[in-house]
Amino acid sequence: MLTKDGIIKSIKHGFIEWVESIGASINESVKGLGNIVLFTVNFFYWVFKRPFRLHLLVDQLFFIGNKSILIILLAGSFTGMVFATQTYFGFKLINVDSLVGAITAIGLAKELAPVLTGLIVAGRAGSAMAAQIGTMKVTEQVDALEVMGINSIQYLAVPRIVAGTIAVPMLSAIFLYIGNVGSYLVGTTSLMIDEAIFFSKLSEFMHVADIWQGIIKATVFGFVISVIGTYFGFQVEKGAEGVGRGTNLAVIWGMISVLILDYFLTVVLVRIL
């Protein structure tokens, strides 16, 4: 039979367990974050050390950049078209539909191009980085590099992180360009906005600083996504299951980081630029 004391004891016990589990997960998160910071420090140490393996950088640029172009073209064009259409119907209510091209361009430049490019690259290349390195780790290929005297971070992480940092802003620029083409086509053909007004408002309201904001954001996203992808690759343990888990974590944390960083970068960049 349950007594009053027994009930109080079990509630206390449950509460303590709950607090302990929260403490443990906070502890794990802080440890994980610390490990990522150490990994990043390690990257900066090795990125300036010889030998510079340019062929590996080119391979990664091809993989992250070239192989993402098609999906970026698709995503960019349709995002520009949708954004222009939605803006048009909103703006028409207050008779400022002539601003559709300018607003779409600013929205794409500052937010949509870098963020969506970041999310796409996190899903495509970030996961691939974790899977490639993770598979190499569980099959002792990483150990083989180390035994040969090759630093695995320098050989595997450095080219991927550098390539990611270079490729994402470039992809974002393509996204921005093709998004504006989509916006222009929809605006002038389907929404019947005058072409001259479309361009005059665009040049009046859009500034170089807007493009810079997007490029800076995309560069940071590229770096962070690649650090996270490679970090989770090196954390892989326990065979195929571990590779799957590492890949999954790389995608989740890559995407979450893009969204969180976007806010903080916006706060900083609108003041600077």
Partner: peptide, 19 residues
């Protein structure tokens, strides 16, 4: 140490070839 490791050759359990 990395330089010194070149004195070693190692055959891993599953060969650890770069796939």
């Amino acid at each position: 140490k990395r330089e010194f490791r070149r004195n070693f050759g190692m055959l891993f359990q599953y060969a650890a070839l770069f796939d």
